[in-house]
Amino acid sequence: MTNILDDYALMSPLRHINNWLKLAIVFFGLLAGVSSTSPITPLFIAFCMSFATVAFGRVPLKFYLKLVLAPAGFALTGVIIIAFFSGSGQELISFELAGYPLAIRADGLELALLVLSRSLGGMCCLYFLALTTPMIELFAVLKASRLPESFIELSMLIYRYIFVFLDMALSIKYAQTVRLGYSNFKRSINSLGMLTSTLFIRSWEQGDKLFLSMNSRCYDGKMALFEVHRPVKVVEMFLTSVYFLLTLVLFYFTKNISIV
């Protein structure tokens, strides 16, 4: 059904690196990528983050490429619309489709490439975080970030139950599939309806049980968390600063470059 990236994060060799350092790298990449004005900086970020994920994080290259290509559908539709309909400069290609004149203009194409590269850069940053940092490590960061207490509690409980219900949904789905529950369209809808409603009722009962069990263990709205102290190594600091500096230099020198 879906690859939960968290499984890879738990096995990642980069798991034990300081969380704040990883978050700084990711947020720096996201912000630099989204505010860059040429496609070169986001592509450089995408390359660096992919390299870090695959080489340092030891994620299989084939699996990683599959992940990066997965959300391409939305990106391509959006980018094609932008390429065709925005811009007012010189026309590069023009043709007629069912009576409608369509044209790609130079500045439209430029904008489309920029948006595509920004998406790619941002996604590589997100994948770096997702594939190297399990959610349990991030809860400590959330706690320190002074978000409302109930919001964090809710996040932690939701996280816990995602896996329980995912297992449940998968086993129901297998059971339905071997009984030909998804053999045609009408049956699929019916089976999916049964699956979701069973899931709903079971999750509700689980909620009741959870309340009882947590109450009997003196739950007062706060779960205590243990944050492991992880000092930043010199090599990591050095690599990060080199990456930051290179990105900023590239950002500065390519801000007025146009590709098309």
Binding site: S150, E153, L154, L157, I158, R160, Y161, I162, V164, F165, L166, A169, T196, L199, F200, S203, W204, Q206, G207, D208, L210, F211, M214, G221
Partner: peptide
């Protein structure tokens, strides 16, 4: 609160 938590997980799985 536990009900909200399981509802959130339910939405995610859905």
């Amino acid at each position: 609160l536990p009900l909200l938590a399981v509802a959130g997980a339910f939405i995610f799985v859905l």
